[in-house]
């Protein structure tokens, strides 16, 4: 209960705080554009929502409250559905607040240079919406993993592994197996994508890249992220409906 609110507040505070620091650090640059700092804190806020999701997803089982819950509501899957619904609303709220605090955080630096940040401009709005979707989705990934694994530490390790470590390993591995001279040998055009890079696009980080305008379409990002919610959620549903609750 308390830890949930602490994690939510910390996420919003970190998003605002880091964005503010980044914006003020670069505000003395000649070509300073405050909206460029908007995406700076997103990876950190992602971790916050991941932790938040895991806490919410595991809380019934880490506390023993599941006994009371499932005695009161023996139709177990409806409990899971309710949790997903509540978490969706909650994660979306935290995501909006986190992105909102980032927007507020660039205002002082922008004002110091007399710039009015153009939030409606070239891809900025899309980026903001993408951030909200990414953060909410990440919260749901954490919750789904938590509901499946049930133990907070194990779930957090799995979540961090899937969302942060795996994509990094894939990118590094792709670099290792790719011949750096292949591009020039092909006459300047970019080398064909290696299977590892393709795989990397289907990790949550790949989804983030798609959502934050860098690679592929936003739809692809949404679908990849949804996949990372649905997979552990299905596993959680199967475990919940088939197994005993001890």
């Amino acid at each position: 209960m308390r830890s949930t609110w602490v994690a939510a507040l910390a996420t919003v505070a970190v998003a605002g705080g880091l964005t503010y620091l980044d914006a003020s650090a670069s505000s003395s640059d000649p070509g300073f554009d405050p909206v460029r700092s908007l995406g700076f804190a997103v990876p950190f806020a992602t971790v916050g929502l991941l932790v938040l999701g895991v806490l919410v997803g595991t809380s019934e089982f880490s506390t023993g409250n599941f006994r009371s819950t499932f005695v009161a509501v023996p139709r177990r899957l409806s409990v899971l559905a309710g949790q997903v619904l509540a978490m969706t609303v909650f994660a979306a709220l935290v995501a909006v607040l986190a992105v909102g605090s980032s927007v507020l955080a660039i205002l002082p630096s922008a004002a110091s240079r007399g710039i009015t940040p153009d939030l409606g401009g070239d891809g900025v709005l899309r980026n903001l919406i993408g951030s909200v979707v990414l953060l909410s989705g990440t919260g749901l990934v954490g919750a789904a993993l938590g509901a499946w694994v049930r133990r907070p530490v194990a779930a957090l390790v799995a979540a961090v592994g899937i969302c942060l470590v795996l994509p990094m390993v894939l990118v590094l591995a792709a670099d290792l197996v790719t011949d750096p001279l292949a591009a020039s040998a092909a006459g300047g055009s970019s080398a064909p994508e290696s299977p590892l890079e393709t795989f990397a696009r289907f990790t949550p980080t790949g989804a983030a890249d798609s959502l934050l305008w860098r690679e592929g379409g936003a739809l692809q990002g949404v679908l990849v992220l949804a996949g990372w919610v649905v997979l552990p959620l299905t596993a959680a549903a199967i475990r919940l409906s088939r197994r005993d609750l001890v």
Partner: peptide, 23 residues
């Protein structure tokens, strides 16, 4: 599992640790 409103039919106290400690 077929009881429509289980708490109104059966009241159970199974384990002292069946509640969220933060509530």
């Amino acid at each position: 599992a077929d009881v429509a409103a289980p708490l109104r039919v059966v009241g159970a106290m199974l384990d002292a640790r069946s509640m969220h400690p933060g509530r």
